[in-house]
Design a binder for these strands. Structure first.
Lengths: 252, 252
DNA sequence: AAGTGGTCTAGACCACTAT
DNA sequence: TAGTGGTCTAGACCACTTT
């Protein structure tokens, strides 16, 4: 393991505060500072590395975001101990399936106007029997169906065209986050489910197999729900991973 | 809906940069700035709100962390569109089960020294047949067993005592992240599984029921694996939730 | 009382984007 | 070329913790 640099190099094309982050990170990774230890104070770091207070504070800010340290006002800056709670599972894992469009195809099974049942009415804040647009589709990966998606949109002459088009075409709009959208926010819930016969048939597997069920509701800028649905994902094709504590991988 | 304040109040006991965050946040929430829109430049904001550049930049930094905006050097600061990829599911949801110790009990089923099989040897980087300490326990919520945990620790005279004690006592050490720990980092994987007969019996439910399986490996400061195991969680008792886009809830 | 992190100011230079 | 965000400096005052 090579020794860490002990000073800031102002010739190199890398901001001093980032160099400082790397220096301190490395010391923490190597165990030079252990969990619970106090780091040098900000004024000390200023002197040691010959940088201004703001530069030190930006470095500290970065380490805070990486969950490597915590600060106590009036006391000091301390190295954090590992804790599982900090772990987060990203939708990124889920998104990877959609990433290369070569291998992933979307097959539309059905688009139709249907009346909201009790559940749909509640989720979309409609009255039972109100019209909705239902979309059912299948995501196929290398020829295997792995996700079944069923979505319902409020039937609103104004919203319909944009919304429906965005959702129908490729599903990618929801993941990209580029350009304009009329959706303001959404709620996602991951639960476990067992496949119904219909779902199992569509996904080319057996009834009662376990599956991830990702339910989603999206709201517009009036905070009205406009879209509700669920992704049913074959359990044997998905996993969520994360790392906690002091790793060489960057997080956040 | 009440109108947002249009200026910084220096009398009130709230830092100007936080006030500025709230002002801009509210404008974005209300749709005054829509996804894709450019916010006023930093110098404009300085003039408008009579604060220094650093104060404005700290506000911008906060909005960036909240994933509400993105910046393009030389161009401007823009409101982000909703995208699912930003969504993260926190272990916090999982942790809640452990939170109030009144309702949650840990029952140790077994602690014993066993020889590593092929899988354990691989995960813990031991040789097959090396000694490990196995711990099996049950988490009981309001009288119902809901999580079965099985863990294996490397049998190391130096590590043993601390490690075993920490893990055995309450499991809470892993979640708290307070004080010192000899664990540097860990990997967590959530997958789906169906209950084996043994697991189903322990969890007081039926074979072939679906379950969340949370596998974990923890490493010490020499990056050697010291602990490996899995939590088997009754699928009907767990869910992970998150929100994406522009919400009134704070994230990160 | 001394030291710590939290906040703020008023400047400055740079690389980049838009026109 | 003018405007933008990214970086940095050298000060300052505050509330808080530690001794």
């Amino acid at each position: 393991m090579k020794t860490s640099p002990r000073h800031i190099d102002r010739e190199v094309d890398k901001p001093p505060y980032i160099q400082l982050v790397q220096i301190l990170r490395e010391k923490i990774e190597k165990g030079e500072y252990l969990p619970g230890d106090r780091l040098p104070s900000e004024t000390e770091l200023c002197k040691q590395f010959k940088v201004s207070r703001m530069t030190v504070r930006r470095c500290i800010q970065s380490l805070l975001e990486q969950q490597l340290i915590s600060t106590i006002k009036g006391s000091g800056t301390y190295v954090k101990a590992l804790n599982i709670r900090g772990g987060t599972f990203s939708m990124e894992d889920f998104y990877k399936i959609f990433e290369d469009q070569e291998r992933t195809k979307v097959r539309i099974l059905e688009v139709q106007v249907i009346r909201a049942d009790a559940e749909a009415a509640k989720k979309l804040r409609l009255r039972k029997g109100d019209r909705t647009i239902q979309i059912r589709r299948l995501l196929i990966r290398d020829g295997d169906p792995i996700i079944y998606h069923q979505g319902q949109l409020v039937y609103d002459p104004v919203l319909r065209i944009v919304e429906a088009e965005m959702e129908v075409t490729s599903l990618l709009g929801l993941f990209e986050g580029k350009g304009e959208t009329m959706l303001k926010w959404g709620e996602l819930v991951i639960e476990l489910a067992v496949l119904t016969k219909e779902e199992a048939d569509l996904l080319n597997t057996l009834t009662h197999q376990p599956a991830f069920q990702l339910e989603h509701i999206f709201y517009d800028f009036s905070d009205r729900p406009v879209s509700w649905g669920k992704f049913i994902c074959r359990g044997d094709r998905f996993r969520f991973t994360t790392t906690v504590g002091i790793t060489n991988k960057r997080r956040i």
